[in-house]
Amino acid sequence: MQMDAIEAAAVLARARQGDSDAFRVLVERHSRNVFRLAFRMTGNEQDAEDVVQESFLRAYRQLGRFESRANFGTWLYRIVVNCSVDLMRARQARQAQARIESLDELDVIPTPAEGPGPERLAQSAEIGARVADAMSGLSPLERAAFTLRHYEGRSIDEISRMLGLRTSATKHSVFRAVRKLRIALAVLK
């Protein structure tokens, strides 16, 4: 659904006044992008669906705080990121025993006995599985920071603003995520 800027502003203004039909237009317009980001952040379809719903509910509750001069998509993006982090924290708390806890644990992933070279493996499911394993071992903030930096191409400053972290903390999250991924993928090289 395409809307020009004036129509979009009018819809947003109505939504901010509590017009649920106007909010429905916003939901229909942004849902697919929200799902894409939520899936990249959580790595799980069901979790992504939960994030989509929670993000729109949160956005609706906070519409009064949204400044109409700002970009609704960017504002919503930030909400999605924070909902994803909240969900990952809750999930990690539930699955604390199952997840990979530290670099040390990543270190002991068994080396495949025989296998094709890295060029072939680059396309293989094994890399995907190892990355998924390593990603599930990241803390929610590490995962969020890495996803936003690596997949979404956001700068460290932007990520810091989205996550409400200091720049140094954001960098640290990215560094730790990269180190864990390097260890997980080292055996393939």
């Binding site: 509590g18 649920s20 317009r29 849902s31 719903q53 509910l57 609706y60 519409l63 009064g64």
Partner: peptide, 20 residues
């Protein structure tokens, strides 16, 4: 139609908006 699906899932849960 995904946006419409999402809307139908959340519409009954919409709280009162906090307006200025």
């Amino acid at each position: 139609s995904y946006g419409l699906d999402v809307w139908q899932r959340i519409r009954s849960r919409l709280p009162e908006p906090v307006v200025p």
